[in-house]
Structures are given as C-alpha cells and as structure tokens.
Design a protein around this nucleic acid. Structure first.
Length: 350
DNA sequence: AATACGTACAACCGCCCTCAG
DNA sequence: TCTGAGGGCGGTTGTACGTAT
C-alpha cells in the first residue's frame, strides 16, 4: 500500500531555488528555527515548496558553515577509507567531515574521487582482462533489472569497494593516498571478487565473503604502538555511534560519547569485542588487536594524523548481532584517528 | 560558429525508520 | 500493538556549464 504524498505535488514549485526563496527560508529559520516540522514550514513562510525540499535546501546549502568544493587531500583520504569500510553511508561519512554534507560527498565521490582512485572503466577492464572475461560494461544496462546488485549477489557498492581495495593494494605510492597502506585481501576474498566479476550467469544470491581469522600484518609506523587506548562501555546498538578517546603519555583519560538519534547517551552496553574496555594498540606495526576479537584493520598515517578502518566478526553482545555500522574517532597528544567499524552482518560484503 | 559530448552538482524521488497517538 | 506522519537517507535525474570536434 502506498503512502499519501507529503504535499500537493500539483501546487508545489520544483527545480532550482531563487535567491528570493532562499532569503525567505533562511531569514525565517534564523529567526524562528524549523519548529521541528518541515512539512508545515513552507506554508508558514508562504513558499510554494515541498517541506522536504525546504529541508534539503537548508541542510545542503543555506545552513551556516557549509563548505562547497575544494576537498582537501585529507578529506579525500577520510572519504576513501570510510567508503571502503562502511560503503555508501554518506551521512556517516559526512559526520566525520565538518561543514560537508552527505549530498556533497556523495556527488564528489560519484563524479570525481571514484574516478581519481579507480581510473576509468576501460582501465579497470584492462587490469582485470588478464584473469576475467570482459563484461563490466553491462552494469549500466543492468540498472533496470537489478539496480543495486550483481547477478551473484554482491552489491555494486561492495564490488566497487573490493575493486578499490585491490586497486589500492597495487599502488604502493599512490600520489593521492600518500603513505597509505591497506591490508591485503585474503586470497579467498580475492578469489571471490574475481568470481564475482566473472560469473555473469551465476544465480547465487547469498554470496558472502568470510572474514579473516587473524589481524592483518602491516608495516606502517604508528606513533601509538605500545600504548593502550581505553574505551568506555558504549551503547553499540545506537543508530550512530561516536566515541572520543583521549590519551596522554602515561595516564589515560577517556571521554566516551554515544549519539543515539542525535541524543547523547552514556548507557552501559559493552560489546564482547571490547574486552576489559581496552583497545590494545599492539606491536603489529599498524595492525591492531582489539580485545582478542577477530578483525581486520587498515590505517593511513601521514605523520600527524592516522585514519583507521577496521571490521570485525565479533561485533555482537547478548546474543544480538548488530547490523548497524558505527564510527569513532580518537585524539591524543601526538595523533588523532578516525575509525569506522562494521558489524558481522555487513562484514560479509567485504 | 555550431554541435556533440562530458562533467559537476543541485534537487528530486521514493523507500525505510522512528515515534507519537 | 497498530498505524501513519514526518524525517532521514541513498539513488537517480535534470540542467548548466565546460571542452572537444
């Protein structure tokens, strides 16, 4: 059963916003706020616009401190690492980049960054030609039938992330991703990726990529090796998770903030992977072991900032598998990290 | 100069989730 | 417990602008 439309489509203006409309909307919200009801807003102001359209215009363009264009290399790195880790959760990625909107990042990724990293499709095909049968150019036509997945069940996003992952492995000195090291794919994951790219006629719709049973070894120097980052119990079940861990040389202080639907929440809910609430930065030379759980992690380290991505199949507690993705960032005197994690359900895509 | 093609980005569509009643 | 309105989100489209032929 369909839903009633949120507004009278016939009497609503669409298309680009005029400066007058912008001014009306901005001055009203500056003065009175949104009132928590976008649908009613345009009527109050006298705008012939859908409430959703007003919301979008405000969030993506009119609200204060919005940045447009001019993405920095650091922002590129964060977007890339988060995309590999959590996929197209643009709102979560945007939350890590102050002043950026999910729409902006999504557009930037689709139109520029993806091409910058992966190159053109023909180049991808050429790279894959040694081991695969060329078929990739059918993807656009596939949209009618299967807009979000390949015939073997891997989502296009997951496939793209795998391709990106493999591509980055081959680029020891990618000028864009300076000093960035990525964990290698497990041979079995690699095999499945190639199979996914080859197997045009496969009917397998439940393909899952297994996780590695051990941490990835890497050689990236990381200033925090040997230190221990304390993480307080955190409500993992929250829609969006944000944690901040602050460390200093010998003493460890922890500030943990969990955001549940925009509301700060410090309730107790410790996932099994965070044994003793410790994230132990082990001597794996950039790989991290976390509470003894099975996980993989990659990092990028430019000397002052390290960004980590990791995923685990131990992301569960109280017999509940959480299917939410989350992210946390931590800062210390000598480094700051931005991390993203994936739950076991999603991890199969990687 | 005209046309075709490519790119960037604002905006829309429609599905999903949350939560109040 | 159920229902539906509103908000959030990702995917997609429309269009202006730039570049190549």
């Amino acid at each position: 059963m369909g839903r009633a439309p949120c507004c009278d489509k016939a009497n609503v203006k669409k298309g680009p916003w005029s400066p007058e409309e912008d001014a009306k909307l901005k001055s009203y919200i500056d003065q009175y706020g949104t009132g928590g009801n976008w649908i009613a807003l345009p009527q109050k102001i006298g705008l012939k616009r859908c409430g959703k359209s007003c919301r979008l215009r405000w969030l993506n363009y009119l609200r204060p401190n919005i940045k447009h264009g001019g993405f920095s290399e650091e922002e590129d790195n964060i977007i890339c690492s988060l995309y590999i880790s959590i996929g197209s959760r643009w709102s979560i990625i945007a939350a890590q980049l102050p002043g950026r909107t999910d729409n902006d990042i999504k557009n930037y990724w689709n139109t520029r960054l993806k091409k910058k990293l992966l190159g053109r499709r023909k180049q991808q095909q050429a790279a894959a030609a040694a081991t695969t049968v060329e078929h990739d150019h059918h993807h656009h036509q596939d949209h009618q039938q299967s807009p979000t997945s390949t015939s073997n069940g891997l989502s296009n996003s997951a496939l793209e992330r795998l391709q990106l992952h493999m591509k980055l492995q081959t680029l020891n000195q990618n000028p864009l991703l300076h000093n960035m090291l990525w964990p290698k794919l497990h041979p079995f994951q690699e095999k499945l990726l190639l199979q996914a790219m080859n197997d045009e006629n496969s009917n397998n719709n439940i393909m899952q990529l297994p996780l590695l049973p051990q941490p990835i070894m890497m050689e990236s120097p990381l200033s925090n090796i040997g230190k221990e980052i304390m993480i307080n119990p955190t409500n993992i079940a929250s829609e969006t998770m944000a944690m901040t861990a602050t460390t200093s040389s010998n003493t460890t202080t922890t500030t943990t903030t969990t955001t549940t639907n925009g509301i700060l929440d410090h309730s107790n809910c410790s996932p099994s992977m965070m044994n003793n609430n410790n994230i132990n930065v082990s001597s794996y030379g950039g790989a991290f072991q976390l509470g003894g759980g099975d996980f993989m992690m990659g990092n990028l380290d430019n000397g002052t900032t390290s960004s980590l991505v990791w995923w685990s199949n131990e992301f569960e507690t109280n017999d509940v598998n959480y299917d939410r993705s989350g992210s946390f960032s931590s800062s210390s005197n000598d480094s700051s990290w931005d991390c993203a994690l994936r739950s076991s359900d999603d991890a199969g895509l990687f």
